[in-house]
Design a protein around this nucleic acid. Structure first.
Lengths: 201, 201
DNA sequence: GGGCTTGTCTACCGAGTGGTAGACGTGCAT
DNA sequence: ATGCACGTCTACCACTCGGTAGACAAGCCC
């Protein structure tokens, strides 16, 4: 009916698809569901993305780009090692607050195998390199405990993503979880946790 | 054809279902697939578990029981704070080594919402209480950095489960991952990470 | 030997999935 | 005015899924 034009539709579909994939998982989400949430029929969605897999790839790329921008922006003007680390964590938590399905989508991307996550990390590759150099420099300067920087980066990733995605576990363990206040408490906890993991002995 | 008897079949089905749910996710795994992997037809599976959901619940309970036994056994005879913590991590990593889909299944359980994970943690409840008391005692004794013990337990959970389930991410970040040697290296890294997170300032 | 429970099967169904074929209308370029 | 690419739709297909109905066979109890 109304021709909303191409690029806007595309963006809306990707955003909704990330929500759906994050909430229901790749297999659990259906094209019908995603399309009608945007107000169009499934066949129109398939006009933009010829297959479900193509839609997923577009989502992965968009997600990578988004998180890349967010982190890059957060890093601007930060000087000390600790300011930088904290800024990144804060940026990711902020993204999760405004877009709760986002971390779940990233985790789902990891579940789908190497091809999937590589599409995502590909858009972040420069950041990854930068992060590893950052950690290595910190170790050389004696500001960070000496260890394998890549594995440390991985541990930091799991700590942040885990504390964002395992909310139901948190609920079962802590007994209370809902709401923004809890998210902020978790952020403080992650920050403290990471800080003490980075500090040299 | 051959009547293999009840309880053994049941166990085999649960074990295979945990594998399938862990690998493909709840939605992605099909009853047909699970049944024929055990050598029977789907309808026979439905004789043991009337619905897919019933099968899932049985898996959750079994998984909880298994991990509970594993940890309880690992804790026997451990005395110091650090021995205990390390023993638990080692036990979980050992379980993951012999049964790679197990951590993935636990994570999937968390994704399915509160009802799911509670079925699982229900079987571990005593251990949870024990762990929190343990952490609290450690803090009181000045052996562990002071903080909210429940949140700390949650952080430990995400660190361990994350480092076991996000293998594809690790691969993308580190560049190499396969094999038993890598799992052991990751275990050492988690142990070091946790240790430094626990140490009081 | 005859019923009864237990286990396994074949056959089938309704719903939902990802994807194809193609009609139709609107606006821009010529 | 006409042609054509773009966007959206209806109709449909092949397939898979979870689940039902019911036949059937083997062991057990009496």
């Amino acid at each position: 009916m109304a021709r909303t034009g191409g690029e806007k539709r595309r963006h809306a579909l990707i955003e909704e698809a990330i929500r759906a994939f994050g909430r229901e998982g790749y297999n659990g989400a259906s094209l019908d569901q995603i399309a009608s949430a945007v107000g169009i029929r499934k066949q129109t969605l398939l006009y933009y993305f010829p297959t479900k897999d193509a839609l997923l790839e577009a989502c992965l790329q968009a997600a990578g780009q988004r998180v890349g921008e967010e982190i890059t922006e957060a890093l601007e003007g930060r000087e000390t090692y600790w300011e930088k680390a904290e800024a990144v964590i804060h940026a990711v938590f902020g993204l999760a607050e405004e877009w709760p399905e986002f971390p779940m989508f990233v985790r789902e991307a990891g579940r789908l195998g190497a091809e999937g996550i590589e599409r995502f990390t590909g858009a972040i590759e420069p950041l990854r390199v930068r992060a590893i150099e950052f950690l290595q420099a910190g170790m050389d300067a004696g500001e960070i405990r000496k260890q394998d920087p890549a594995l440390l980066l991985f541990m930091l990733y799991t700590a942040v993503v885990g504390s964002l995605t395992e909310a139901s576990v948190l609920n079962a363990v802590v007994g209370e979880d809902k709401g923004r206040a809890s998210l902020h408490r978790r952020e403080r906890e992650v920050v403290a946790f990471v800080r003490s993991a980075l500090v040299p002995t």
